[in-house]
């Protein structure tokens, strides 16, 4: 108990220190933001966050997609140990529910994807939504993707990243890595976003499905 008390006190002190730090911190000067706004025209998209994510700091995004894929690999390394059989009975309510819900999900995902170019949104948000759809589908119809070959599944989940890297390699012909030619920038970004959405949705869904799918 004493240990806990001491810890709480220390945490409070620590927090106090951090508060003090924030209170005395000089106000943030958005130097980079002004740079971003200045170069926005060169990025091929009109939304600044998307421009940063997919053009100015595209490398971060590339690596971040890599992290997600890596997490999937990690999960597949440790997962074969504890899969269990999910509940598999057909059910009218869920069938109808999914039939209504799925198109809505897909539409909203597409909307979010396209909206990314001029307001907050983009591939990641869309893919999260799409992954939710896939998970619901998988839960209600557990047999659905069983026949899908593992190789194809892996390929689909890596496709977005592969395409992203491929674009990077292609841009090497003309300029630097991931330096989109200005005239193609918006198209390329959109293509990357689309494929990323697709792959990420599959990866995110696999995060879940890997834990629940049956062993066959």
């Amino acid at each position: 108990m004493l240990y806990k008390g001491v810890l709480w006190c220390m945490a409070a002190l620590f927090l106090g220190m951090l508060f003090f730090m924030v209170a005395t911190m000089p106000p943030f000067s958005p130097k980079l933001d002004t740079l971003v706004q200045a170069d926005l025209a060169m990025s091929g998209v009109s939304h600044d966050v998307t421009a940063v994510l997919l053009n100015f700091r595209a490398l971060d995004t590339l690596l971040e997609v890599g992290v997600v894929l890596l997490a999937l690999m990690g999960i597949q390394v440790v997962s074969p140990h504890f899969r269990y059989k999910p509940y598999t009975e057909a059910n009218t309510i869920t069938d109808i529910y999914i039939a209504i819900l799925l198109p809505v999900i897909i539409l909203s995902a597409l909307y979010l994807l396209l909206a990314g170019s001029y307001k907050s949104g983009g591939a990641f948000v869309a893919s999260a939504l799409l992954a939710g759809g896939i998970i619901i589908l998988k839960l209600t119809k557990p047999k659905l993707f069983v026949s899908l070959e593992k190789l194809h599944l892996r390929f689909l989940s890596a496709l977005g990243l592969l395409f992203f890297v491929g674009i990077g390699v292609l841009t090497l012909i003309e300029g630097l890595f991931l330096q989109y030619p200005l005239s193609y920038a918006s198209t390329l970004i959109l293509m990357i976003e689309t494929l990323l959405m697709f792959s990420l949705a599959i990866i995110l869904a696999s995060f879940f499905i890997n834990a629940v799918q049956d062993l066959e």
């Binding site: 980079l32 971003v36 600044d48 966050v49 421009a51 971060d60």
Partner: peptide, 11 residues
Amino acid sequence: ADSVATALVLT
């Protein structure tokens, strides 16, 4: 919001 900070947070 600062666009770079937002991008960092998203990443």
